[in-house]
């Protein structure tokens, strides 16, 4: 990021390539709508670009990036509760079709499982869903989750535990 702040575009491209997928999935699974996720994704990177000179070396880039995304989520888009719509079902079906290779019964099962998981995620409280996604999707530790979500370490841990428990019960695993 420091290299990019000094004008090296290639440094930004490397950063973008490394984080684009995880950031996008974090946003998509938080809002469960592709159009909103696209918008949030672009907004997040726009802010990163604009704030390149204010980036502090002591902050880990992933944490900083996700912090920006989390603030954008809280600011505007979370007012609309994520909902499981036809779009997410389509995504789930597309994946299941790719993976299952001509086995209709398994395709249907996996599609159903993915859909149920997405539904369960959407039903989680925002803060618990964020804790879950930051841990499982982005691989952050408790300290980083606490920093991104702006809460204490114990709170972050407790949110993650609740999220896992609720999902397990909801999916009967």
């Amino acid at each position: 990021m420091l290299a990019y702040a000094h004008g090296e575009t290639r440094a930004f491209e490397a950063l973008y390539a490394r984080h684009r997928g995880t950031l996008y999935r974090f946003l998509l699974r938080s809002v469960a709508r592709r159009d909103l996720a696209d918008e949030l994704f672009q907004d997040t990177w726009t802010r990163v670009i604009a704030a390149r000179t204010r980036y502090r070396v002591d902050a880990k880039f992933t944490t900083w990036l996700l912090q920006i995304a989390q603030h954008l989520l809280i600011d505007g888009y979370r007012r609309q509760r994520p909902e499981v719509n036809g779009e997410s079902a389509e995504l789930a079906l597309q994946f299941a079709a790719d993976a299952a290779e001509d086995r209709p019964d398994q395709v249907l099962t996996e599609f159903e499982q993915a859909r149920r998981l997405q539904q369960a995620l959407a039903e989680l409280p925002d803060d618990q869903r964020s804790a879950f996604l930051l841990r499982v999707e982005n691989g952050l530790d408790i300290e980083a989750i606490a920093e991104v979500t702006g809460v204490g370490r114990e709170t972050a841990k407790s949110r993650l535990r609740y999220a896992l428990e609720k999902l397990r019960l909801r999916l009967a695993l």
Partner: peptide, 30 residues
Amino acid sequence: ALIERYRALPAAEPGAHLDTAILKQAALAV
């Protein structure tokens, strides 16, 4: 098991148009 199931979800990626727009924006900024 739960985490395994989550990881089995489709690995959504941003569209190519987003990649282009963001990289162009970053290049222009510097």
